[in-house]
Write a protein that binds this DNA or RNA. Structure first.
Length: 898
RNA sequence: GCCCACUUAACUCAGCGGUAGAGUGCCGCUUUCACACGGCGGAAGUCGGAGGUUCGAAUCCUCCAGUGGGCACCA
């Protein structure tokens, strides 16, 4: 058999995914066990405009690990994928294309524009679906969904109608966040606030009936044209007498009142605030409280209106600002201008400064659904967040939830299912026919607006499964098992899914929520398009392989982590290590039986065999525990150390002599079978994390086939694959504490002898003699069984075992081990006495320090009285052990001096 | 301003009440027949600071500092 020395990830990655997909391995239907438990995950649908970034790759790894793991455990497993129509983003992308042709969407008209978007989607949307295949994501492509699909659109209309009928959805004029560039309203969550350097202008407004003036401070002087009051705090001594008086609004020549409101902070600015109800959310609220008129001076294009006055009408808001300031200065009413830093609201997509405007929009009241979500958490602990701390983030937000602006002035999206008759009557219905029936006429016009993209996303866990139909999929896979996502959409998405799921399906959409960490760049900054500091996962795949990248991401788990190529490289090396361990087993597989090689009672097996089986089962147990608690970091650690340290460094080395024997024999074949068996089990354990290298190697193993599959998959037509084998489950009976302890003492012995060899400069090729005194307890038997292995691993010509250390030549290097074991390496003609004395001295010092610490604790009566007896006994044991080793070392030093 | 998380070896991170760990890097030795993307051995940390609880604290509590994030904003 020809096997290259180095693993080539690309080769393996190109081979397996297409076959898995073709043979239906990713669909739940592959599972033929009617009583199989169900495991399901819906993917956070990436934008149709999106391409794969590190954040996706990160989430996908966790989902794929869990999905592959549960599939191997025989669960009827569904990982449902799809895409989001991403209203604003997609409309922007297609508009940009049109611009290249010198067109705007208005030139096309709505219908043709929407057609054009669909064409764009067909041609270049959804790059990410191909990229996900590259990741190895075992999603069920046969159930792929798109938020604008007919089925999902129907769910959207159904939810809208029901919410409307129950009075949760209403239409009205409110102050909203308006993006003058995108020409649409935005929800609070689509607005970002950034600190920005600006100016604070102090403007003076004269009183009507006196020569007095009052000074107000503002960052937006142009809005003063729409002022309808000035407010002060009712307890502010400076202004108390003046409240109720009339002011003359400069430039506008309008009379406005001086009012009192608790909202005003007397400490800030001058303690007097200009009130512009039509252009500021806080002023809007105050305007309602005081029944102030709303004067609209800025329009949807962020230009001044006629109402702003002839001089200003048509001016851009920033031009108007300059002009207002100029006019105030001319009038001697500009008190001062100071530099000031404040938070400015911008459109999350296009970064244009938001203009708060009064506009007629559709809103959704959240109080009832909010209360249901809070009760669900309080009473049933659902969803359960990992890490737990996000539970508070979630509840705090819910508690302060306000009405949700759900309409958008876009063309791409779910058009609002509301129709108007010629008299302006509103008919909310599932379709035009139903609306016509309600209206008693078909002379209706549908509302031109579409719904917020997140409205459809909020329904994702059930709309994708066929709701409102009572489908088989909905019954089977809802609620899903876990939702995995980044923390930035807990509000935008997670909370809304909980609310709609609970309300419309009657159950929570998922039991658990796992919030991933964030992959930061090398400098600790978030990766972003604008900073251009993103690391492309596809480039990393090319450089180090998908499996290595997956392990790196799995290690990130829920901690924010700086990207570090060295980490990926180390897992690339790990993949190579797996490859070569398998290579060794395969090159020595001739004669291996189809049986597992572990025949008969475990007590009859060699120590290293009992040990590796114990380690294997312990690892399986650790994996089960880690994955049940979403401890991906711990899971990777366990796998890595089991495979590299236990299997490669020790098991293969310990069994090498048997496995590589020249003569064919039953013993050799059994040893070969055992190595292959452990390897095969290890590949299964690794598979959810490293699907490609494990499949590549598993395919080469002798004796694997469909009969290796989990019972649930044996009847399926899929060709043999490691992904359908059963995941190793820990058998407690095979976890052998004693074997692990005994093996540990052999490992310690070998390590100490190697240490002597290195420290005393014994050449690698030089053979040594090893003398062991094992005391009267069982250690002698343990080492006795392992003599051949000890010889091999320490390059010894001879291993002598004694109860007591015999007389040794002065030129001997010695080590005291735990459990009263001593080892000596006679080194006639090689040993440097001074150097050896020094080495022993160092060792003795180290132990001395430890003894001091242990003794201090033991001599503390508080400790011996209050600590658990078990802990005290443990410490006494250690104290004895260290003491014994120290005295052994002292003896050795004396011998050297003698 | 409020809330949350983080601060452990040079770097990236585990550990979260009972002898300080891993990977990378570093220092030796090593191309012996699975693997130099390897093997063997080794050095390296007053666990951000200060208090407190406890027989015992990296781990629990309080305060402080720094970093990151979220929420709310004062016009």
């Amino acid at each position: 058999m020809e096997i290259p020395k180095t693993y080539d990830p690309k080769q393996a990655e190109a081979r397996h995914y297409a076959r898995w997909e073709r043979e239906g391995c990713f669909t739940p239907e592959i599972n033929r066990d009617p009583s199989a438990p169900v495991y399901s995950i819906v993917i956070p649908p990436p934008n149709v405009t999106g391409s794969l970034h590190m954040g996706h790759a990160l989430q996908h790894v966790f989902m794929d690990v869990l999905v592959r793991y549960h599939r191997m455990r025989g669960f009827r497993t569904l990982w449902l994928t799809g895409m989001d129509h991403a209203g604003i983003s997609t409309q922007m992308v297609v508009s940009r294309e049109l611009k290249k042709e010198g067109l705007t969407r208005h030139d096309l008209g709505r219908e043709r524009f929407v057609e054009r978007v669909w064409e764009w989607k067909a041609a270049s949307g959804g790059q990410i679906t191909q990229q996900m295949r590259r990741e190895g994501a075992s999603v069920d492509w046969s159930r792929e969904r798109f938020t604008m699909d007919e089925g999902l659109s129907r769910a959207v209309r159904e939810v809208f109608v029901r919410l409307y009928e129950e009075g949760h959805i209403y239409r009205g004029a409110r102050i909203v966040n308006w993006c003058p560039t995108d020409q649409t309203v935005l929800s609070d969550l689509e607005v970002e606030r950034n600190p920005q350097g600006g100016k604070l202008y102090y403007l003076q407004y004269p009183f009507k009936d006196s020569a007095r003036r009052i000074t107000v401070a503002t960052t937006r002087p142009e809005t003063m044209l729409g002022d309808t009051a000035v407010a002060v705090n009712p307890n502010d001594e400076r202004y108390r007498e003046l409240v109720g008086q009339t002011l003359l609004l400069p430039l506008a020549s309008r009379e406005i009142p001086l009012i009192a409101d608790e909202y005003v902070d007397p400490e800030f600015g001058t303690g007097a605030v200009k009130i512009t109800p039509a252009h500021d959310p806080n002023d809007y609220e105050m305007g309602l409280r005081h029944e102030l008129p709303q004067v609209v001076v800025i329009d949807h294009n962020a230009k001044m209106t006629e109402e702003a006055g002839a001089e200003f009408a048509g001016l851009d808001r920033y031009k108007a600002r300059e002009l207002v300031v100029e006019k105030f200065e001319e009038a001697g009413l500009l008190e001062k201008v100071v530099d000031y830093e404040f938070a400015i609201s911008k459109c999350e997509r296009c970064k244009t400064v938001i203009e708060p405007l009064i506009s007629t929009q559709w809103f959704c009241r959240m109080d009832e659904m909010r209360d249901m979500a809070l009760a669900l958490l309080r009473e049933e602990g659902k969803p359960r967040f990992t890490p737990e701390s996000y539970e508070r983030v979630y509840t705090n937000w819910l508690e302060n939830l306000r009405d949700w602006t759900i309409s958008r002035q876009l063309w791409w999206g779910h058009q609002i299912p509301a129709w108007y008759d010629e008299d302006g009557g509103v008919y909310v219905a599932r379709d035009a026919r139903e609306a016509a029936a309600k209206a008693g006429t078909d002379k209706l016009t549908q509302d031109p607006d579409v719904l917020d993209t997140w409205f459809s996303s909020a329904l994702w866990p059930f709309s994708t499964l066929g709701w409102p139909e009572e489908t088989e999929d909905l019954r089977t896979f809802y609620p899903t098992s876990v939702l995995i996502t980044a923390r930035d959409i807990i509000f935008l998405w997670v909370s809304r899914m909980v609310m709609t799921g609970r309300k419309f399906v009657g159950r929570e959409p998922f039991r658990d929520v796992y919030i991933t960490g964030t992959v930061l760049d090398r400098a600790g900054q978030r990766m972003s398009k604008t900073k251009n500091n993103g690391i492309d996962p596809l480039v990393v795949f090319d450089k180090y392989g998908v499996d290595a990248t997956r392990l790196t991401l799995a290690m990130v788990a829920s901690t924010d982590t700086r990207w570090n190529d060295a980490q990926v490289e180390s897992y690339r090396n790990f993949a190579n290590k797996i490859w070569n361990a398998a290579r060794f087993c395969l090159l020595n597989s001739e004669g291996a039986s189809t049986g597992c090689g572990f025949e008969g009672a475990p007590e009859s097996w060699a120590l290293h065999d009992r040990w590796i089986v114990s380690r294997l089962n312990r690892t399986a147990r650790a994996l089960e525990e880690a994955l049940a608690s979403y401890d991906f970091h711990g899971a990777v650690q366990s796998l890595y150390h089991f495979f590299w340290d236990d299997f490669c460094d020790w098991y293969i080395e310990l069994s090498k002599q048997d496995v590589t024997a020249n003569e064919s024999s039953a013993a050799r074949d059994a040893a070969r079978s055992r190595a292959l068996t452990v390897l095969e089990q290890a590949l299964r354990l690794l598979h959810p994390f490293m699907p490609f290298v494990t499949e590549e190697l598993w395919q080469m193993l002798p004796g694997v086939g469909r009969e290796s599959h989990h019972a649930a998959y044996r009847e399926s037509d899929a060709s043999p694959t490691v992904m359908l084998t059963s995941y190793p489950q820990a058998q407690e009976a095979l976890i052998d504490e004693r074997a692990e302890r005994e093996m540990q003492s052999v490992i310690e012995l070998v390590s100490r002898v190697r240490n002597i060899r290195t420290e005393l400069n014994v050449k690698p090729g030089e053979q040594v003699r090893v003398v062991i005194s094992a005391g009267a307890n069982g250690a002698q038997k343990v080492f006795g069984q392992s003599v051949a292995q000890i010889m091999r691993l320490t390059r010894a010509s001879d291993v002598a075992l004694h109860e007591e250390m015999p007389a040794l030549p002065r030129a001997s290097a010695r080590q005291a081990l735990s459990g009263g074991v001593e080892v000596a390496v006679p080194l006639e003609g090689l040993i440097d006495f001074a150097r050896e004395a020094e080495r022993i001295g160092r060792e003795r010092e180290k132990l001395g320090r430890e003894l001091e610490k242990v003794e201090a604790q033991l001599s503390n009566p508080q400790f011996t009285e209050r600590a658990p007896a078990e802990k005290v006994a443990e410490l006494r044991q250690r104290s004895d052990d260290v003491r014994q080793r120290i005295s052994a070392l002292a003896e050795m030093q004396e011998a050297l001096e003698g």
